[in-house]
Amino acid sequence: MVAKHIKSLLYDHDCVIIPEFGGLITRYVSAKINPVKHSFAPPSKKIAFNEKLVLNDGLLISTIAYQNNISKEEAQQLVTSFVQQAKTTLHAENRFELQEIGVFRYNPEHKLEFEYVEGENLLDASFGLPELVARPVRVEEPAVLRTLIKERQQEHAKEKQPLRKRLKRAYNVAAGLALAGLTGSALYFLSLQADYNLSSLNPIMLVNASYTSSNTGDITRYASGYVPVTGEERVATYAAILPQEATAVVLEQQQPALEEQTFLTADSASASLVFMPEEQQNEEVKEEVVVPVKEVKPAEPVLTINEKSGRSYIIIGGYSTTENAAVRRDAARTAGHDSKMLTPGPNSKLYRVSVADFATADEAKAVLNNYKKSFGETIWVLNY
């Protein structure tokens, strides 16, 4: 059971420490080509072992306790039993296999060595990518070769057209351009003549003109029985209906009213321009003085702790490289946490990533359970 949890932790962490036994460290391996097998392998992780990393960082024990819903004391007992069994097997058989990870042996100097066994790809970015095998091109494919040769021959035939065909094509293009130019020039010169209308060339206009000329003769004729009224009869009829004296009186009464209205309109316009308060006329326009405001740049956040600060940090993971730790730190800061990266101390080689820091360890432990909801049971407090 412990071996299964160790393998699952190697997917997400660069270092998994087995207390009192050693630490398994992963490193990135780029994609590679096998010239013998003609295969392409995706990027992956390789695992190495360091028997000096025996200090318990709480990662393995906390994971086992959380996944199996047991206490940390029981999880620690399981890990201790696993380590004792591994050491007993090594002393008896000089070989201990960690399933799907690697094999441990003692060398002649009685130092523990580790041999990685390639199995599942532990790199999350390459999950599900198989090893691709390139099939060599076979010469025994005449159908494909005939098709390629035929296409190339057609391309060469198009490129090497006879000179007569090319001249004929150029002649047709030049003749079309010349005909279009002559037509345009003829229309232009016809438009310059004053007594010639280009619209007469439109057949629809000719039909409309003939139809209009045939129907305009009956428009000016009077109906049968109509007698036109002369001008003298029209004046006499108006004089009988409205006498001239009444018309003159009405015009004289309306004239003063029109003049008064015009005069008032002009006076009101001039009054709006002339009568202005003296205070407003003498008021001076004061220019506003713009005071430049100095921009205050916000203080840049502290992202890396390079020396001991005496504060307590809530650690969410440890990484063997600066790049992996920086990626984890930036992801936590994007989620809204004050995440920082702690450089390795004198007895450590891991870059640790925190999500919060406090003045004392008691303050950090008081809020530790709140962060476990987001980062799991493997987080712990470090006095740095």
Results as ranks from 00 to 15, higher is better:
10 L>P: 04
13 H>D: 14
14 D>G: 15
16 V>L: 08
17 I>H: 04
25 I>E: 05
25 I>Q: 08
26 T>F: 06
33 I>P: 04
35 P>L: 05
36 V>I: 06
37 K>E: 15
41 A>S: 15
49 F>G: 03
51 E>Q: 15
52 K>N: 14
55 L>W: 05
55 L>N: 06
60 L>C: 06
63 T>S: 13
63 T>I: 03
68 N>A: 12
72 K>Q: 13
78 L>C: 10
92 A>T: 15
93 E>L: 11
93 E>K: 15
96 F>L: 03
100 E>V: 00
108 P>R: 06
112 L>C: 01
113 E>R: 11
116 Y>C: 02
119 G>F: 01
121 N>I: 02
134 A>Q: 13
137 V>Q: 10
141 E>V: 00
143 A>L: 12
143 A>G: 08
144 V>P: 04
145 L>A: 11
148 L>T: 03
149 I>S: 07
149 I>Y: 10
151 E>S: 13
152 R>A: 11
152 R>N: 14
155 E>H: 08
162 P>I: 00
163 L>S: 13
173 V>W: 07
174 A>N: 09
177 L>A: 06
177 L>F: 04
184 G>S: 13
185 S>Q: 09
186 A>K: 02
187 L>W: 08
192 L>K: 13
196 Y>M: 08
199 S>E: 15
206 L>S: 10
210 S>E: 14
211 Y>R: 14
212 T>M: 12
214 S>W: 02
215 N>L: 10
216 T>Y: 13
217 G>E: 14
229 V>G: 00
232 E>S: 10
233 E>R: 14
240 A>K: 15
241 I>N: 10
241 I>K: 15
244 Q>S: 14
248 A>P: 01
251 L>R: 15
252 E>N: 10
254 Q>C: 02
258 L>T: 06
258 L>W: 08
263 F>A: 14
264 L>D: 09
269 A>W: 09
272 S>M: 07
273 L>E: 12
275 F>K: 07
276 M>L: 15
276 M>S: 08
277 P>Y: 05
280 Q>H: 08
289 V>F: 10
289 V>M: 07
296 V>W: 02
303 L>D: 08
309 S>A: 05
309 S>F: 01
311 R>V: 00
313 Y>I: 01
316 I>Y: 06
321 T>Y: 04
332 A>K: 00
334 T>Q: 12
338 D>L: 00
344 P>N: 02
345 G>P: 05
346 P>H: 09
353 V>G: 05
363 E>S: 10
365 K>W: 06
366 A>Y: 09
371 Y>P: 05
373 K>E: 12
374 S>I: 08
